[in-house]
Design a protein around this nucleic acid. Structure first.
Lengths: 233, 233
DNA sequence: CCCCCGGGGTGGTCGGACCAATACCGTCAT
DNA sequence: ATGACGGTATTGGTCCGACCACCCCGGGGG
């Protein structure tokens, strides 16, 4: 008699798929407000508890955004919103998978840097230089790390591909970098890092994509090789 | 008096961070079973409802796995587990972001194919050929798409980087490909696709990384350019 | 010794209640 | 007429208790 119930999986899982489907079909636009939790639960014939779990899951995925006292909204569905969870991957990966992640980062970062060399504007270049000099002007590891991240972020932005920039952002999450670098920079890698950053900067100034690609690949590759050797022990 | 409560964010959000932290610190190993929902809620001083939302969120992220009647377990935390959510990004992206996703895929896929050309084993090559011939032997779009996906998946596997393979898997999610290809292959792109696949295969057989990279980049680039032109209208 | 089945434990769902933050709207002073 | 103020309805956040569905394990019967 009933026609709508394939009954696959849990009720909450179904709710997640339904909401995702509504967004994919365009029935829910980015930024749009959803019905209240109570109404949504009633519409899909489930309890508010189950619906809340579905909403929470989609919130963590960066698809929805819940504003206390106001309502539930679809995010702008931009690269940054959806790829924020990528940082979780980096944070929870260990051992050989860290090397794999760095390999992916090397591939993307080198290409992004090459693209940036071709497209970067004077304003963007100034921003990059700001973080480069700030990074070289201090000895506080915390501050260095912050400017290091910003340095690469600005470059990724200049490449003109927000999705790629968001992925790289996740691959360079704060805890991830801090974890890897803790041991790395104990081996006096500071000077080498500065040289590599300077090389990347030179290539950007010269608008030389191939030089930029090589410099970025070497930069990430250094860390990658060091980590690889650490695993061998 | 109280020392542990920074009170940041919602209770559920705190629970998510706590559990993530326990895994990151190694206090929870992959595959290990967690305390029951009721116990966890009691330990962190919150209601079972809030704890359930946290668990559900981590389940969707591929960090935890709930087995009805048995318990909650940490997943193996392998690339496939954690990057499954990447498919959501592909499914919900539209317009210019689709082009960006294809650009990322082109970069990764070309590199993966180049690596595969250098490393692929006879067994893996046979598997690739199986899907290649099967893809050319039918006219059913559904079947073609399935073998197309498997063709690229086998190649990504042969590249030896599970993380990269998992990302590419997400970027080629079924609904994503189906959506893009719907219009694309109406323009008689079947023959061209077959030629491109054949070129990739030849490069793999010859163990020629550079040829493989070029062939894969051209293959994805074709679709990318078509999609770019579609957006212009 | 093996098979079956029953009970206890566990996740899944439900309904209701209350709290906290927000938004809306009518009131009042300017 | 207009803007600041405050109260109230709305809405997400949390908690509680109950029951169901499923899995696992162990005891009893073959």
């Amino acid at each position: 008699m009933d026609e709508t119930a394939p009954q696959k999986g849990t009720v909450t899982q179904r709710a997640i798929e339904r909401i995702k489907g509504m967004i994919a079909e365009g029935r829910l636009e980015p930024g749009q407000r959803l019905p209240t939790e109570r109404d949504l639960a009633a519409q899909l014939g489930m309890s508010r508890s189950s619906m809340r779990e579905a909403i929470r899951a989609l919130t963590v995925l960066g698809v929805l955004e819940a504003r206390h006292g106001s309502g539930i909204y679809v995010t702008q569905l931009e690269a940054g919103d959806l790829l924020e969870t990528f940082g979780v991957v980096a944070d929870l990966s260990r051992g050989p998978r860290l090397v794999e992640l760095l390999e992916v980062r090397r591939i993307l970062e080198s290409t992004a840097t090459a693209l940036a060399a071709a497209r970067i504007t004077p304003d963007q270049l100034a921003e990059v230089e700001k973080h480069l000099t700030a990074m070289n002007a201090t000895d506080d590891p915390e501050e260095i790390l912050a400017h290091d991240l910003a340095f690469h972020r600005e470059i990724a932005m200049a490449a003109g591909n927000d999705t790629m920039a968001a992925i790289l952002e996740g691959l360079s999450s704060r805890t991830f970098r801090a974890r890897v670098w803790r041991g790395y920079q104990e081996e006096g890698a500071f000077a080498r890092t500065r040289r590599e950053h300077a090389a990347i900067h030179r290539a950007l100034v010269a608008h030389d994509p191939e030089a930029a690609r090589a410099a970025a690949a070497a930069h990430v590759g250094e860390v990658e090789q060091w980590l690889r050797s650490q695993l061998g022990e």
